[in-house]
Amino acid sequence: MQSYDTEQDWFLTKAQVEERPFTSHTPLLGPLIAWFRTQWNNISAKWYVRPILAQQNTYNRLVAERLSDIDNRLITLDHEHTQLIHDIAELNIHFAQTNQLLQSIDTRLANIEKQEQTSA
């Protein structure tokens, strides 16, 4: 397992697309083939692909940054939501206490009414 570099945003580094050098595994002629492909790429594709690559990287970075922003908002909402659940649990206790108090007042009131009826 590789260790994690806290200084770098792991997701942002994954979003960066880069040109790869041409290689060939063909024995003996491999370096020549790779050189030829590189030269042909320089002539035919490089100047066309590079702006697209830059555009893709800009888009990837924007997506990564926007996802990171959404993550941060979700984390904040999660904290707020969790705190609210705690607060509701506290309210539940108050509710239970109030409920019991009302029941006991009800009982006492019934007793008082009963006593009044008896004395009357």
Binding site: Y4, D9, W10, F11, D71, I75
Partner: peptide
């Protein structure tokens, strides 16, 4: 994410990728 913020999200995804 709850405990470590954005860094935690990254770590969780690294875990999911087996890294």
């Amino acid at each position: 994410g709850f405990a470590l913020g954005q860094e935690g999200i990254n770590r969780a995804w690294q875990f999911r990728k087996g890294e």
